[in-house]
């Protein structure tokens, strides 16, 4: 075997991005065709962007248009690059950074809602407590028998997180969440 030495340099010049990372919500209107979601998420994984939340479904059936809502995290320059890269994808019609739109209108965030289902298995006092708290969070009981509830709760991500945290010690066994759906405030179409 040859002598072992310390690893030296390489050919690339790395510059640290000193910007502060922020969460932004992107709304992407796309042709609903096979592979379109793979193109979008492939771009994110291929270029090393984060996905915090992802929601997609067809929203305009006649035109076969789907809306993809992605919450991502990055510095200003990364977020701008993300938008431009998304716009290069052929079936992408438009990309809107809803967080930027909200900031321009004087709000911290766009309107964001999530739906979650929580399965809670409990009896006795715990069961009553779960029901009381669900009522306080305006959660609906959508399935139940004598040993369990399934709650449906809608709201901002922070509210969902809080509800899950509260239910955790009360017999929470399963959670399902839709991810964030978001829209800009006001009458304008973004």
């Amino acid at each position: 075997m040859n002598e072992v030495v310390a690893p030296p340099a390489s050919a690339y010049f790395i510059v640290k991005d000193n910007g502060t990372p922020e969460n932004h919500t992107l709304s992407i209107l796309v042709d609903n065709e096979p592979g379109v979601l793979a193109r979008v998420i492939g771009l994110f994984s291929g270029r090393g962007y984060n996905i915090e939340s992802l929601t997609v479904t067809e929203t305009e059936h006649e035109k076969h248009l789907s809306r993809i809502t992605i919450v991502s995290n990055g510095t200003h320059s990364v977020l701008e690059q993300m938008r431009h890269q998304l716009e290069r994808i052929v079936p992408v019609h438009s990309v809107t950074d809803l967080t930027v739109v909200a900031h321009a209108k004087g709000y911290e965030k766009p309107l964001e809602r999530e739906l979650a289902m929580l399965k809670v298995v409990a009896t006795g006092e715990q069961r009553l407590e779960a029901l009381r708290l669900a009522d306080a969070f305006k959660a609906q009981v959508i399935d139940a028998n004598v040993t369990h509830f399934i709650f449906e709760v809608t709201g901002r991500t922070s509210k969902i997180e809080q509800f899950i945290a509260i239910m955790a010690p009360l017999g929470l066994v399963e959670v399902c969440r839709t991810g964030v759906a978001a829209m800009a405030r006001g009458p304008g179409i973004e």
Binding site: E80, Q81, H84, Q85, E87, R88
Partner: peptide, 11 residues
């Protein structure tokens, strides 16, 4: 011609 090239590496 590609908007994503602008400000990608150098401002």
């Amino acid at each position: 011609i590609d908007p994503s090239s602008i400000n990608k590496i150098v401002h």
